[in-house]
Nucleic acid binder design. Structure first.
Lengths: 236, 236
DNA sequence: CGCTCGATTGATAGTGATCAATCCGAGTGG
DNA sequence: CCACTCGGATTGATCACTATCAATCGAGCG
């Protein structure tokens, strides 16, 4: 599952970072070698929708959200990125969403051209990028499947997913607002609120501000309507 | 729009596989060279969810749908694949969905191992696969965005998208049932029906059985709530 | 201390799912 | 050739869920 991300990306230096089993973030030591590290404060933009997509980023600490606007002026949160995860890799020349830091966030940026060159030279890296792209697609597909389920299932999925991605067992500190969660899951912030309340009343979670304490992870997972989770990485 | 991919990747070198203009699929001549062609009748399974994902496929003619079941027994259509398009490339070892032919369908299957080897040797092919994967992710993201819109916008998007992918201007022959469309868009078949009726009443389309005649493509596109369409292809 | 934004709770309305019934076209067998 | 059958398509009636509007609350901050 997700727990290994830290093991894979947070552990020591050396180029040739060992790829831990089960990690869903590619080993991108070259990222650190070739990229420059930047710090962003709460709400600050890392890039903006429509800009030339010349950099690909990896989160070091903090959380990043990518957002876009629908033609009707509604905001959509496309994804949250946790430490170790990659964002900003686009199919065409410009970013299709804006990226903003939530809280204090450090990211490493790597030029897209450089990354392409590195991938061309290093088959392992290439395979890992493949895997990462496929994972991204899978996540988006999960989200589109989530669109079919009701508010409780969406929130349950969100909490379970976030807990996995941050290696959290009992207490999950959510850095994002109810509005962010709502725009991510396609709900209204009021419904997000009420759903948290329902989960509290059912004894599945407790909340303290933006922190969530898991009281019954088993039943919470049961609510999560997502399909079976993938296990391993592409075999080249 | 998407048509430009062909300009970037479809330049007609080397062997076979007549890829139609306007195709959104990578040029994969190697597919034809290395793969074996198979014919499937209506409803026949090409592969099944959970099976070892040893082959990657390309549609020659006909249409393929990939489906899966939610844990509550509801069927979900994940994607339709048109001639020239690729399906069956999975991140892990087994297919996450089943693939079935709609109508008489011919596909070319290529061993995943072989494809990986070919991609490792041929940087162009590798880039094209990247692009394809990113496109897949984008499509899934579009779908998850669609989850936020109402029935009319979903159907409008579906029709416009299908027309683009099949290079159709006025008359679109839909091979799939209302149930397929419903399970694809996360609607009930009744709602799909009623929405077609609404579009007819508004003078945007006419229908003859499963055929759709576009009477006012401009307004139909206006209904399509999808975000700005991407322009070109990844530059390596 | 007042301001502001996010969180929460309440009341109401709209959209689409669901249940139900009928219609229609193609294939089948008498 | 025609009645039968069966799955998909269509239309109708009802209900649940969630968006929306509205109001209040609470905490951080200048």
């Amino acid at each position: 599952m997700f727990q290994d991300i830290h093991a894979a990306t947070g552990t020591p230096p050396t180029p040739q970072l060992p790829l831990s089993d089960g990690s869903r973030a590619p080993r991108l030591a070259q990222f650190a070698a070739g990229g420059r590290s930047e710090l962003f404060g709460p709400g600050h933009a890392i890039y903006t929708q429509g800009e030339a997509a010349s950099f690909v980023y990896q989160v070091v600490f903090g959380v990043v959200r990518t957002t876009m606007l629908t033609r009707h002026g509604r905001r959509v949160v496309r994804e949250f990125y946790m430490p170790g995860e990659i964002f900003g890799l686009e199919r065409n020349g410009s970013y299709t969403a804006s990226a903003e830091a939530i809280g204090n966030t450090r990211v490493i940026g790597c030029e897209r051209m450089r990354l392409a060159r590195l991938a061309a030279e290093d088959p392992m890296l290439s395979v890992e990028l493949w895997s990462w792209l496929l994972l991204n697609g899978e996540r988006a597909e999960h989200l589109s499947l989530l669109g079919r389920s009701n508010a409780i299932e969406k929130i349950a999925h969100f909490l379970v997913d976030m807990a996995q991605r941050t290696s959290v067992n009992r207490r999950l500190e959510l850095p994002m607002s109810r509005y962010d969660i709502a725009d991510y899951l396609g709900l209204s912030s009021e419904t997000v609120c009420r759903t948290f309340k329902t989960l509290r009343e059912r004894g599945l979670i407790a909340t303290e501000g933006r922190s969530v304490i898991f009281l019954n992870m088993r039943d919470l997972r049961r609510l999560d309507g997502a399909p079976a989770q993938p296990q391993s990485v592409i075999q080249a």
